[in-house]
């Protein structure tokens, strides 16, 4: 194997990292876009993600089918979302506080039920090799694309279209922008928000299943390292636009791959600094695109963040 590709290793690693690492960000942020477009914010998605990772892995272990695991993770995520949505439908309940409570609950339950599944090995989700033409093992590995990533990419376009041009999208946007207008149209905001939060939770659950069933591909209590929380921030960064979420997720994934890739080509000092790259990047982009006049462009009017 004589494949010393020198500095080309960095862009290839960033590309590979973007594809491998971004999927959980993508699913959680797409789910949160639906939720926030309906006027709710669900900070509990980190807990949903971890519980999805655990339940998906556990079911995949027990049934031998990774897709059964994904289905159960989505179901569990939907339950978490619905519970959040229902509690927030009660009067005078703060959705941010409930979100934090749900996050702790999700993680606690996942750790409790996940104990017996740290050891067993579950089947992995399939991936499609797109790099066979290159003859370069590094590129082949980077272009080994998981099916969930492709589904996520398709969903981001679909959600964008749905929010823009369908009746469901219109209903979501009306509920999110003005409770009064929605009521005047005869809609019931509480129910729609609860359903939107449930859908968002299901997406986050699938994101968790990707973590435990594909990359890194095992269940343990440290599996998440905060992807669920970062994805919620990513939604604001992407201005509540599903397609922007896709690129933001890629950016975060690629930036995360930078640290290991630089060390592997010999840029080894200061690796703690490179590991901070995704966060520095976020700050930089936020500053670059910020403007006092359109700071909250695209923000749903009923969001507790903006009110």
């Amino acid at each position: 194997m004589d494949n010393d590709i020198g500095l080309w290793a960095i862009p290839i690693a960033i590309l590979g990292g973007a594809i491998r690492v971004s999927t959980p960000f993508l699913f959680v942020s797409l789910g949160e876009v639906l939720t926030e477009r309906s006027g709710r914010i669900n900070l509990g998605l980190e807990g949903t993600l971890v519980f999805g990772a655990m339940s998906g892995y556990a079911v995949a272990c027990l049934t031998g089918s990774a897709w059964a695991g994904v289905a159960v993770a989505a179901l569990a995520g939907a339950v978490f979302g619905l519970v959040h949505g229902l509690i927030c439908s009660l009067p005078k309940v703060n959705d941010i506080a409930i979100g934090i409570a749900m996050m702790l609950l999700g993680m606690g339950l996942a750790f409790y039920f996940g104990k017996p599944f740290i050891q067993p090995v579950a089947p992995d989700l399939p991936s499609i090799p797109f790099g066979g033409w290159s003859g370069l093992p590094q590129l082949e590995a980077a272009l080994n694309v998981n099916v969930l990533f492709l589904i996520g990419a398709a969903l981001s376009v679909f959600f964008w279209w749905m929010l823009r041009s369908t009746r469901i999208g219109l209903i979501l946007r009306v509920v999110g922008d003005s409770t009064d207008a929605a009521r005047a149209m005869g809609l019931r905001p509480a129910i729609i928000r609860t359903l939107a939060t449930g859908a968002g939770g299901a997406m986050a659950g699938v994101g968790g299943a990707y973590l435990s069933l594909y990359y890194p591909g095992s269940w343990n209590e440290g599996i998440s390292s905060g992807q669920g929380l970062m994805a919620v921030a990513l939604v604001i960064f992407a201005r509540w636009n599903p397609i922007a979420c896709f690129f933001a997720a890629l950016l975060f994934g690629g930036a995360g791959a930078l640290g290991p890739a630089l060390q592997s080509v010999g840029v080894s000092s200061g690796y703690y600094l490179f590991y901070a790259a995704p966060y520095v990047l976020t700050l930089g982009v936020m500053i670059a695109i910020s403007s006092p006049s359109r700071a909250m462009t695209g923000a749903p009017g009923e969001l507790s963040l903006t009110k």
Partner: peptide, 16 residues
């Protein structure tokens, strides 16, 4: 740090 360990392993494999 599961994800970072996986990325590091991939980077090592990429480096040969």
């Amino acid at each position: 740090l599961a994800v970072k360990e996986a990325e590091a392993t991939n980077a090592l494999c990429d480096a040969g």
